[in-house]
Design a protein around this nucleic acid. Structure first.
Length: 922
RNA sequence: GGGUUGUUAGCUCAGUUGGUUUAGAGCAUCACGUCGACAACGUGAGGGUCACUGGUUCGAGUCCAGUACAACCCA
């Protein structure tokens, strides 16, 4: 079989994803194995995956695939969120483009359009998830408006209402004038702006309506406001009772400019005398603080804005004018009429709607609320007790705690159509009946009418039974918070077999930006309804930023298209690139260079495959010629290494292949153990780095070179099969990160009945550190000798004569053939004294002499040696200083002192070696 | 204003209970290299005293305090 020059991902990826689906590897049903459950954070149904999702899904897939290969019944549930505001806004926009005004449609007509829209675009995210290689159970795909899910949301609302945890009332809420709906506190994003503070004078009157003598030369009292368009809603002026400037105004009145309404001067310590003029205009309808002040002082509430942000009839002037346009006009008029004093710049913060971007308006409105204090307690203790572990570390614990301890009631109603309609019905008198269905509500109404009739003897005919359902829908998060339960029908069918098996889920992987929107509320719902946490671990990924550190956003246009990236680099490379640059919990700077690194890694794997396939061909060729070379076999010692690695005879002579195989076998186990620890700590980026280096450096750069047969030479059967075995194990180790290429190579290495996707990891064996250290020494010697060759400007083809001066020649005899090949030595000899006229390289206590045709550059060598000598002497000095410190010797642990002594001996020996080498230079 | 986190090589980051050599990796840089796995590559090399100040300790990148700067969250 001919292998292409470079790895081509596209065909491979499609082939294997289809194969895995055909084999139903991703489908899970409860069985006797332990479950490993992950629910996907449902993306917006009509959205596309951005880089943040890509990171999230990749992390989840790695964890799920790892679990599936480690004896767990892995179940990853995909799905999407109806995203009420975002989707409705998109549908409204689409209708507008078709010339259709939402207001001319009935609810049913609108929903028909919305569902058409969902059908058309809802599949995009799913195809992207598939392209990325995510091993989700497609049979379990859930949408937050599926029938059972819809019913579950309704059921929960009714239940919470019956428990007294839900109430309806007029409160000050955040109003989005563009989407014309209420928002929760979490849906408001604050931005720093430089606003203006306008100073405006109000005329004063006494209780009899007579003008009061001018203050400070003016004709009244000056207030400072950022929002002059709200003055028509003023119902008081408030000053601090301790502010002597205004003490004489007790019981007096101010006149609102332009509309000339008389409003009282009130006194409250809330007002900061040092801010502005020390006098505050109070507009209870349009500011939360003013609202509270109004409640306290029983002030009138004048709402001067319509729901679309234009001025209302109550404003009396500029009715119908948009709020910011009205501000300009009012300022002009205030100036004309002499009420305007001055304006100044003022750094401030303004709330914007997370979805529509409109400036949010505080507004008094009748909405449904969920009492949060009662829900917060168990959710707080679940995390504080450590039942739910947050990764990384405790970084988010303080934030989480603070939010839950200070949480306010949650406004759950939205003035939209796309979502679960609130199951509350009103009779003609405005009485409310909450029930799961209209029939149930109707029964409640009848019951209550009967009671009333009996109690109050209502006139016959007054109690009409006509009911109207609340037009509003629920906040999207009021459905999303049930996600881990209801994907297994845990709410609609409590205690069913599936929810018992899969819930609580294993780990939730999500962005830290939705910790309050979603994570905290899922914990609330979970602890409330299942009486248990919804997940054992939470893994917060960082935010994906561009190279310059900016947030990725549509408006900046700096978010790349996922499918484009996959086309260009392949899914494996995208996964690699995003994972390698993503330390747990930290923001990651997305740079396409890391995807290139991933693609290059693919290629490296591919080329390694080509190399061993070439060996296979040679091996087979030899067999057909029946010139079977059976002179090689694994020594007992090497075999022992595979069985009981601990018992390597110290002086066992090893040939190059046995040495290489024993070394790599141990190195592999060492890394596997390391990776296992990293997985348990969710340090996936580091795990990938370790695997990457094991494959590229240890396997490709060292091991394959060491066992490589000579030019056009056949390879030993045993070496070949061990190499294939190593390669397969490496592919298995890498598979969760890069599933496609690893599966492909696994199958190309040899004929397979099974698939890597579900191949179970073998138990990790103990590592023989001595064997690993032997390999490290060999690497070090080879690198140092190559460096010396380079420094002497020897061409790769030029051979050298190598002389080794060591106290333990056996160590080098074991690796002699490898060494010879790797440094291109024609001979290797062992000596007991210095070799004149040779370049000398000192490693540990051993010396290596290089003799070549080319004359050694003694000056360079001398400089190098002197530099090394200086370094060693400095080091020795610091060690000696430490050892001469009596308090160190007295206080430090014995091992530490011993180590320092060894360091001293090593450094001294090394200095001696260098000095001898210097003396040897001519 | 309150809170959280961070500041280590040109860039992005590791450095897990303080002590295995006066700090590691990837990318970038430089030198050399192309007859057979790999130029999307190979072999080497250079580069930082760990933001700053002080403290604890026999010993601090690591612990504590303060300062500066940055990011994020909340009001």
């Amino acid at each position: 079989m001919e292998l292409s020059k470079n790895y081509i991902p596209s065909a491979t990826e499609e082939k294997w994803y289809k194969h895995w689906l055909d084999k139903k590897y991703f489908n899970s049903t409860p069985d006797e194995r332990p479950s490993y459950t992950v629910v996907i954070p449902p993306p917006n149904v009509t959205g596309v995956l951005h880089m943040g999702h890509t990171l999230n899904e990749t992390v989840q897939d790695i964890l799920v695939r790892k679990a599936r290969m480690s004896g767990f019944n892995a179940c990853w549930v995909p799905g999407s969120d109806h995203a009420s505001i975002a989707t409705e806004a998109k549908v409204v926009q689409m209708l507008k483009e078709q010339g259709i005004d939402k207001n001319t449609l009935t609810r049913e007509e609108f929903l028909k359009y919305a569902f058409q829209w969902k059908e058309k675009y809802g599949g995009i995210i799913y195809s992207q998830i598939a392209k990325l290689g995510c091993s989700v159970d497609w049979n379990r795909t859930t949408f937050t408006m599926d029938d059972h899910y819809y019913k579950a949301v309704i059921k929960v609302f009714v239940d919470l209402y019956n428990k007294g945890l839900v109430y309806r009332g007029a409160r000050m809420i955040n109003w989005d004038p563009a989407a014309k709906t209420a928002l929760s506190d979490e849906e408001v994003e604050f931005k720093d702006i430089v606003g203006k503070l306008y100073h405006i004078e109000y005329k004063l009157e006494d209780e009899n309506g007579n003008p009061i003598a001018p203050l400070h030369g003016g004709a009244g009292i000056t207030i400072a406001t950022q929002r002059p368009e709200t003055i028509m809603g003023d119902t008081a002026i408030c000053v601090n009772p301790n502010d002597e400037r205004y003490a004489h105004l007790k019981g007096k009145f101010a006149i609102v400019p332009l509309i000339y309404r008389r409003i009282p001067i009130i006194f409250d310590e809330y007002v900061d005398p040092t801010f502005g003029t020390g006098a505050l205009k109070v507009t209870p309808a349009h500011d939360i603080n003013d609202y509270n002040l109004g409640l306290k002082h029983h002030l009138e509430v004048v709402d001067t804005l319509n729901e679309d942000g234009t001025l209302s009839e109550a404003a009396q002037i500029y009715v119908g004018v948009e709020r910011f346009a009205a501000r300009k006009k009012i300022l002009v008029e205030l100036k004309e009429k002499g009420y305007f004093i001055k304006e100044e710049e003022y750094p401030s913060r303004l709330g914007y709607s997370q979805r529509s971007g409109a400036v949010v308006e505080p507004r008094i409105s009748t909405q449904w609320f969920l009492k949060m204090k009662e829900m917060a307690g168990p959710a707080l203790s679940a995390v504080v007790n450590g039942d739910i572990k947050i990764h990384p570390g405790e970084k988010f614990l303080a934030t989480y705690k603070y939010w839950l301890e200070n949480v306010k009631d949650w406004c759950i109603s939205r003035q939209l159509w796309w979502g679960q309609q609130i199951p509350a019905w009103y009779d003609e008198k405005g009485n409310v009946f909450v029930a799961e269905t209209e029939e149930a509500a109707s029964l409640k109404l009848q019951a209550s009418s009967l009671e009333q009739q009996n109690a109050e003897r209502l006139q016959p005919g007054a109690g009409s039974l006509k009911l109207t359902q609340d037009a509003d829908v629920f906040d999207t998060w009021f459905s999303a918070w049930l996600w881990p339960m209801e994907v297994f029908n845990g709410i609609s069918d409590p205690g069913n077999k599936e929810v018992d098996y899969y819930y609580p889920t294993s780990v939730l992987v999500t962005g830290q930006d939705i910790i309050f929107f979603w994570v905290a509320r899922m914990i609330m719902a979970g602890t409330h309804y299942e009486k248990v946490k919804p997940f054992n671990d939470v893994y917060f990924t960082g935010m994906v930023r561009d190279k310059q550190g900016r947030k990725m956003s549509k408006s900046l246009g700096n978010s790349p298209d996922l499918l484009d990236l996959i086309d260009k680099y392949g899914a494996d490379a995208v996964r690699f690139g995003i994972m390698i640059s993503s330390p747990a919990g930290n923001d990651l700077l997305f740079d396409e260079a890391s995807l290139e690194q991933g693609r290059n890694f693919n290629n490296k794997l591919w080329n390694a495959l080509k190399l061993v396939k070439m060996w296979e061909a040679r091996q087979m060729a030899e067999e057909t010629k029946e010139i079977v070379d059976d002179s090689f076999e694994l020594t007992d010692e090497t075999k022992q290494l595979f069985g009981e690695i601990d018992q390597l005879p110290h002086d066992a002579p090893l040939d190059h292949a046995n040495f290489s195989i024993a070394w790599f076998a141990n190195r592999l186990q060492q890394v596997r153990a390391e990776v296992e620890v990293l997985y348990s700590q969710f340090r996936l980026s580091e795990a990938l780095k370790v695997i990457y280096s094991l494959i590229w450096d240890d396997f490709c750069s060292w091991y394959l070179e060491w066992v490589k047969p000579g030019f056009e030479q056949p390879i030993e059967d045993e070496v070949y099969s061990k190499t294939i075995h190593f390669f397969e194990e490496l592919m298995q180790l890498l598979h969760p990160f890069m599933p496609f290429i690893t599966e492909e190579i696994y199958h190309l290495l040899s004929e397979k009945q099974d698939d890597l996707c579900i191949k179970q990891f073998a138990a990790i064996k103990a590592t023989n550190n001595e064997v690993v250290a032997g390999g490290e020494l060999l690497k070090q010697v080879i690198s140092a000798l190559r460096d010396a060759r380079n420094k002497s400007q020897l061409k790769p083809k030029e051979t050298i004569k190598l002389y080794i001066q060591s106290e333990n020649n056996q160590v080098y005899k074991n690796i002699e053939s490898i060494l010879q090949k790797q440094v291109n030595a024609e001979t290797i000899n062992y000596v007991n004294e210095t070799v004149p006229n040779a370049t000398v390289v000192a490693i540990e206590k051993d010396k290596f002499y290089i003799e070549s045709e080319r004359k050694a550059d003694t000056e360079t060598i001398r400089t190098e040696l002197l530099k090394d000598l200086e370094h060693q002497r400095g080091f020795l000095q610091s060690v000696i200083k430490k050892l001469n410190n009596e308090r160190f010797v007295a206080n430090a642990k014995v091992e530490v002192v011993e180590l320092e002594k060894k360091k001293q001996a090593d450094a001294e020996a090394r200095i001696k070696t260098i000095e001898e080498s210097l003396a040897n230079l001519v």
